[in-house]
Amino acid sequence: MKILIIEDEKELAGNIAAYLSDENYLCEFAETFQQAIEKVGAYNYDCILLDLMLPGGDGLRILETLKKENKQDGVIIISAKDSLQDKIAGLQIGADDYLAKPFHLSELAARIYSVIRRKQFGNSNIIRLNELQIDLLAKTVHINQEPVLLTKKEFDLLLLFIGNKNRVLSKSALAEHLSGDIADMLDNHDFVYAHIKNMKKKLVDAGYQNYLKTIYGTGYKWEA
């Protein structure tokens, strides 16, 4: 899987690449508008991470170029601008997702995973993982062909874990994934425990082996 990280902040680009490296992803970098245009024109990527404020130009122009050339690369905008207008503008031009900085790497990884799956599998987007079967479009989960009824939040959590296998996910990352923008206004993230406890119980009851490990004091890890 090839990923292009268009980001002028080298440190951040490096961290993203380091986090993704274990996952069979091959990351390339572009730090300026010019570099980005060249790489995008010359190669195809499974997913492009696009910062909007770049030295040399507006990131949205890169997105427009991609769409004009009818390229199928998935695009996730990662921007410090967190206004509805920018989000709408980005998605209208054809970005697949929009993530405001600062974000957790786990959140980004889950979204990359989801974008790539959508691009590759289109309408029959079913993830099979051992005895687990997840239909991304219908948002249903089956274990050994038996349906498991998860709430929306439990389903979202499961996807976050699937997109971050063998990674330690902090409670903070899980809380942000569940409550979005307001997570940092909540003083304790205990509600995360409740959702994970419920999800785990439902999965175990349906005959799933315990892949989800608790890392004391920190968070959780899906071992696969």
């Binding site: 951040l12 961290n15 410090a80 900085k101 600062p102 957790h104 790497l105």
Partner: peptide, 12 residues
Amino acid sequence: QTPLAVLKSKID
């Protein structure tokens, strides 16, 4: 936001 993003990713 950018240095915060760097910091957050480093922690992750």
